[in-house]
């Protein structure tokens, strides 16, 4: 299921990457920014899908780690930390540490408890961000006046123009996706799939299922944190909304829309999500109800998601032809 479409998609990925590199030359600035947001949410959703699609764990609290990444970055930038590299590194590390502590509590029981506890602890992080005004600015969030430039030997690359933010985001998203790609193809990735397939059999061939799940949770949390840093740079602010369950719902919806069984499914789901948002927000501000109303039939009738169903349909046609 998950392995399908991997090796063949390498070329497709490279072509797509080339297109994305040319993106800002073709697209108007408004759409350049939307595509930037799609990158960020695509990475966020793909990190969520490491848990959901690959190991069968449904987390409703990933926004917590996304927000931790965003807030850590915002705090470091505000205190005048000069190095963006170091800011990203520290933020991802902090998000991963939070994932380690919270994950340790969440993986102790079955999938239902996991869903319930991730939601609960995710909202705990939201509550902290919302109420600890001295540190986080409370419900107003933390606006940033400036973001330090990207510094490479001999170059200083300001993150003021949206096109620069686009490439900056593309680079880090690609790095995050590359990490995910390596992980799912590694022996550990095989363990994850085995957890989803049959955790009992896996335990009885000597695997510590909780530890495997915890490791996946930490990786997913760290990458969600990375997406959070990018979002913070993109928006020039961090707000408690980033940690609310309505925000955790985003990667869930994107993954379901795109399909959890396909590696890039969640990213396609993110693209579908934003195109829908452009359409829908023209008519109504209550955008969650629209998403909920879309999600319900997708869950009932197309459990493999839109892209997932399409991939399977194409596969079936190919098989029946040969």
């Amino acid at each position: 299921m998950s392995a399908r479409g991997f090796s063949g998609s390498v070329i497709a990925t490279l072509v797509l990457l080339a297109l994305l590199l040319l993106g800002p030359c073709i697209l108007p600035i408004y759409w350049t920014m939307i595509v930037t947001e799609i990158f960020i949410m695509g990475l966020f959703s793909m990190s969520f899908n490491l848990l959901f699609g690959f190991s069968g764990l449904l987390s409703f609290g990933q926004a917590g780690f996304f927000g931790i990444g965003a807030y850590t970055a915002a705090l470091l930038i505000q205190t005048g930390f000069p190095s963006l590299w170091l800011i990203i590194f520290c933020s991802v590390l902090v998000a991963a540490l939070f994932a380690l502590a919270i994950g340790y509590l969440c993986v102790r029981r079955d999938e239902i408890f996991f869903a319930m506890l991730t939601l609960g602890f995710g909202m705990m992080l939201f509550t902290i961000a919302h109420n600890w005004r001295e540190l986080t600015g409370g419900s107003d969030g933390m606006p940033l006046c400036s973001v330090p430039p990207v510094r490479l030997p001999g170059i200083e690359w300001s993150l003021f123009p949206p096109v620069h933010v686009y490439y900056f985001t593309l680079f880090w998203t690609a790095a995050g996706v590359f990490i995910l790609w390596r992980v799912v193809r590694s022996p550990f990735g095989l363990m994850l799939t085995a957890v989803r397939e049959n955790k009992q059999r896996l335990a009885f061939v000597g695997a510590d299922v909780s530890r495997i799940r915890l490791a996946a949770f930490v990786i997913a949390g760290g990458l969600a944190g990375l997406a959070g840093v990018l979002f913070c740079v993109f928006n020039r602010m961090a707000t408690p909304d980033f940690m609310h369950w309505a925000f955790s719902a985003r990667p869930v919806l994107m993954t379901i829309l795109g399909g959890s069984g396909v590696f890039f499914g969640p990213a396609w789901g993110a693209a579908i999500f934003f195109c829908l948002e452009q359409l829908v927000t023209a008519f109504t501000e209550n955008w969650m109800i629209v998403l909920g109303l879309i999600l319900i039939p997708v869950v009932i009738f197309f459990p493999q998601g839109i892209v997932g169903t399409l991939v399977q349909w194409l596969g079936d046609r190919k098989e029946s032809r040969s």
Binding site: S186, F188, M191
Partner: peptide
Amino acid sequence: VPLALEHHKGFRFWKS
């Protein structure tokens, strides 16, 4: 799956 566990490779994240 069990072979990777037998050789303590279950927690290798990077090698394909």
